[in-house]
Simulated assay, not measured.
Amino acid sequence: MEFAAFCALYRTRYLQYAHSRLADLPTADVAVRTAFAQLAEQWDQALRSPHTNAYAWRLLNRHISALEGAADDAGGEAARPKGHGVGRSLLPDHTNETRILHQDLGIPFVEATEMMGHVSPRPR
C-alpha cells in the first residue's frame, strides 16, 4: 500500500522529468515504469535507506541515463528536440536536476528537493 501511494504521488512528476531529459514521451514512460518496477523489487531496502525518495530518485536517473546513452549511441542526440535533455553540463547532477524540476517544469523548489530526497535547510 505504501509503494502504491509513493507511485501515485510521484509518477506524474517523474514522467515530466524523464520526458524533459529523453527524446520522447514513450521513452520517458519506459524509464519511469522500469524504475518503479525495480523500486517495487527493492521496496524494503528503499524503506530502510536514509531517505526513500533519494533511493527512488537514483533508480530513476539510472534508467534515464541508460536510455540517454542508448539514444546517443544510435545517433539520437541530433534528433532530440531542442530544449530537451540535460546535455554535457559542468554542473553537478543534482544542480541540473533541480534546475529542470524547478525552472523548466515549474515545480516549487522545496517540492523538487524533497522529491529528489534532499533535505532542505529549515530557517531557525
Rank of each mutant, 00 (worst) to 15 (best):
E2Q: 12
F3I: 02
F3Q: 02
A5Q: 12
A5S: 08
A8Y: 01
A8I: 06
L9C: 03
R11W: 07
T12L: 03
T12Y: 01
L15Y: 06
L15V: 09
L15F: 11
L15D: 15
Q16C: 09
A18D: 15
S20I: 12
R21S: 11
L22S: 11
L22D: 13
L22N: 13
A23I: 13
A23V: 15
A23G: 15
D24F: 11
L25K: 00
L25G: 01
P26I: 12
A28E: 07
A28D: 12
D29V: 01
V30S: 07
A31S: 12
A35L: 07
F36G: 00
A37W: 09
A37F: 11
A37V: 10
L39M: 02
L39E: 14
E41V: 07
Q42S: 11
Q42N: 04
W43K: 00
D44N: 08
D44Y: 00
D44P: 04
Q45H: 00
A46L: 00
R48H: 05
H51C: 04
H51D: 12
T52I: 06
N53F: 01
N53I: 02
A54Q: 06
A56H: 04
W57M: 11
W57N: 13
R58I: 08
R58H: 06
L59V: 04
L59Q: 08
L60T: 03
N61R: 12
I64H: 13
I64E: 07
S65Q: 15
A66H: 15
A66E: 15
L67N: 08
G69D: 09
G69T: 15
G69V: 10
A71D: 04
D72C: 02
D72V: 11
D73F: 11
G75E: 13
G76P: 08
G76D: 05
E77R: 15
A79N: 03
K82W: 02
G83N: 06
G83W: 09
H84C: 11
V86T: 12
R88M: 09
S89R: 09
L91C: 07
D93T: 04
D93W: 05
H94W: 13
T95Y: 14
N96Q: 07
N96H: 05
E97P: 01
E97Y: 07
T98Y: 02
T98E: 08
L101C: 10
H102S: 04
Q103C: 08
Q103S: 06
D104F: 03
L105S: 11
I107A: 02
I107W: 05
P108V: 11
P108T: 04
F109P: 02
A112M: 10
E114G: 05
G117C: 14
G117M: 12
H118T: 08
V119W: 04
S120K: 02
P121L: 04
P121M: 06
R124F: 03
R124C: 04
